[in-house]
Design a protein around this nucleic acid. Structure first.
Length: 552
RNA sequence: GGCCUGUUGGUGAAGUGGUUUAACACAUCGCCCUCUCAAGGCGACAUUCACGGGUCCGAAUCCCGUACAGGCUACCA
């Protein structure tokens, strides 16, 4: 019995040959230097920031080299599969602008290297496994899970390396005849690689991010086809990335220790391995230690967190870019109208060690980002946020569209705009007092400043409306009149003069303006008072002042 | 236990043997400006690159050891 016959018995019902598939998926016709990258998630639910980060880098690298970025679903562990996870992943990629141009997309599969779901590629993996068996590079292993556990225990006891290698690989040298006997006897088997490696041999691997790595050769006879007929991750990776002509495998660095295995797999398959780039994990400080950003402990680890609080996707992207490439921030800050797509991302500007995920920094980026948006966009984004998460705000925004937009526009369209909002959920907290519906519904507390005396406050308010407030005033005239009011009541109109001789006055213009501000809004801190008054108009001002006085 | 990788300030980090008395940004703290806040301006914030050795005229940068951290060590990915 020869190996070819044996391979037919071991993996029956394989429709095609390795050669068939190699012909079916010819080399890609791409310009020199174009990268073919991929994001290969397992559909296990919940999209983690780390995964988004990896897909960003993959997508960016393909985009800037006019290459291809595809998504492949790695569902070879059917037990862990979560319903709907695939579409969640694709939706998130899409929302962030990392939509793949090949493979699994929101509108189904695209591209000629499919299927892009591993469970649908079973025949392909088996064809390659058969080819290896024929060449004597893979073999069936009949050891039961119990036997494997025993071996493992024994190895732990003797402090040997764990795994099926060397003398531990019991079934490695079974003759075809013996194998047939076992099959006839109904014994279950899986297919293992007959590793040609030696643990004492060192191999040198160049990683695009980590640089030169020296590692021992793989000598473990890893499983390539599991008992359910599906491949393990390692084997599927080698076969798929070979057939899909991936040029760069960019993935999390939890994979570096499998590199010798992966390189060997390509070698055994007789094909050139792709280039590898291993991304350091996003981590979080906990006490003195760093740990990976965790779904359970860190809400910000979930991609969905950002939509829930209303942090713009673009801000998240900018943040990811700043941790991805050390020179990005400089570039972004010094490039007028910087467009993320124009930035040239490089592997050698990526960190080798883990980066602390800094929400504060992300928020700062978001604050800056929102501050540069036109008010109409802020309005639209706020509305879209409210429509999902805040019915009350949504109603108000629809009712007062122009008013709200004007409100967001205060001190905005200038070189250095106000930076009031970090996220769209801040908007309501910071503007509620400008909506009568919200203001009147609340029993507001007035945050008075230096002037607390009720009669003095009443005096200021009525005098201001009677004599000093003119709706047609421009800002400087408006301010000038406030100074006149200050003087009439014995407050300093000039801050310098006041500072030089505070005793000569009851207070200063600032005190007066605070009274007006607080009476109008109840808050001591608001955007430019002049603009707020303009927006409210005389009647509403009068009403607010009366309300205020009534509250005494 | 074994194998691999990493370690620069409160944080992200620049830095690849010699204008580094260690860039820049965030945070923090002062002062200034100012109708409040925000913004802005100015300034402070690592005598030192985990620690210990070594190589060299010269090291954060190269080598060795130690410590700590992370990853891997599945018929999970």
């Amino acid at each position: 019995m020869d190996l070819k016959e044996l391979s037919n018995r071991l993996l029956p019902n394989v429709e095609h040959t390795r050669e068939y598939y190699e012909e079916k998926y010819p080399k890609r016709d791409l310009p020199e230097g174009a990268m073919v990258t991929r994001y290969a998630p397992s559909p296990t639910g919940f999209v983690h920031m780390g995964a988004l980060f990896a897909s960003y880098i993959n997508s960016k690298m393909a985009q800037q080299t006019n290459g291809v970025f595809f998504v492949r679903i790695e569902d070879t562990d059917q037990a862990r599969e979560v319903e709907g996870a695939t579409s969640d992943i694709l939706r998130d990629l899409n929302d962030f602008g990392f939509a793949p141009n090949e493979g699994m997309t929101l509108d189904g599969e695209k591209g000629m290297y499919g299927p892009y779901i591993q469970s649908k590629r079973k025949d392909i993996y088996q064809a390659f496994a058969k080819d290896l068996i024929e060449k004597g590079l893979a073999y069936p292993c009949f050891m039961s899970p119990e036997e494997l556990n025993e071996i493992r225990d024994k190895q732990e006891r003797v402090k040997a390396r764990i795994g099926i290698y060397g003398e531990w690989a019991r079934d490695r040298y079974l003759t075809p005849e013996k194998i047939m006997e076992k099959i006839e006897a109904g014994e279950k088997y899986i297919i293992r690689l007959k590793s040609p490696g030696h643990f004492n041999h060192k191999i040198e691997i160049k990683d695009c991010i980590k640089g030169r790595l020296e590692m021992p050769e793989n000598d473990i006879d890893i499983v390539i086809i599991k008992s359910d007929g599906l491949p393990t991750y390692h084997f599927a990776h080698a076969v798929d990335d070979y057939l899909m002509h991936t040029t760069h495998v960019i993935r999390g660095d939890e994979w570096v220790s499998s590199l010798p295995t992966h390189i060997q797999l390509f070698q055994v398959l007789g094909v050139k391995p792709p280039k590898y780039a291993h991304i350091a994990p996003l981590s979080k400080k906990e006490g003195e230690n760093h740990r990976k950003l965790s779904k359970r402990k860190d809400p910000e680890a979930a991609v969905s967190y950002y939509t829930e609080v209303g942090i713009p996707k673009e801000a998240v992207k900018i943040y990811l870019a700043t941790i991805a490439n050390s020179n990005f921030e400089r570039w972004f800050d010094t490039t007028p109208n910087a467009d993320l797509n124009d930035f040239n991302m490089e592997f050698n500007k990526m960190s080798k060690s883990d980066s602390l995920f800094d929400l504060e920094k992300l928020q700062n980026i978001s604050r800056n980002y929102i501050s540069k948006l036109p008010a109409t966009t802020v309005y639209e984004q706020a509305l879209s946020y409210a429509s999902k998460f805040d019915q009350e705000l949504e109603d108000l925004l629809i009712k007062y569209k122009d008013y709200s937009t004007a409100l967001y526009n205060i001190e905005r369209e200038r070189k250095k705009p106000r930076k009031d909002y970090v996220m769209y959920s801040d908007i309501k907290n910071q503007t509620w007092y400008m909506y009568d519906e919200l203001f009147d519904a609340l029993k507001v507390t007035y945050e008075w400043g230096n002037i607390q005396d009720k009669t003095e406050i009443k005096n200021i308010l009525s005098l201001y409306l009677e004599k000093y407030y003119h709706e047609t005033d421009d800002e400087s005239a408006w301010f000038h009149r406030m100074k006149e009011l200050a003087e009439e009541l014995g407050y300093a109109s000039d801050m310098k003069a006041y500072k030089e001789n505070p005793e000569a006055y009851k207070g200063n213009v600032a005190d007066i303006s605070i009274v007006l501000r607080v009476a109008l809004t109840s808050k001591a801190q608001t955007p430019n008072l002049y603009n707020l008054m303009k927006l409210m108009g005389r009647e509403r001002m009068q009403q607010r002042f009366e309300n205020c006085i009534k509250s005494f």
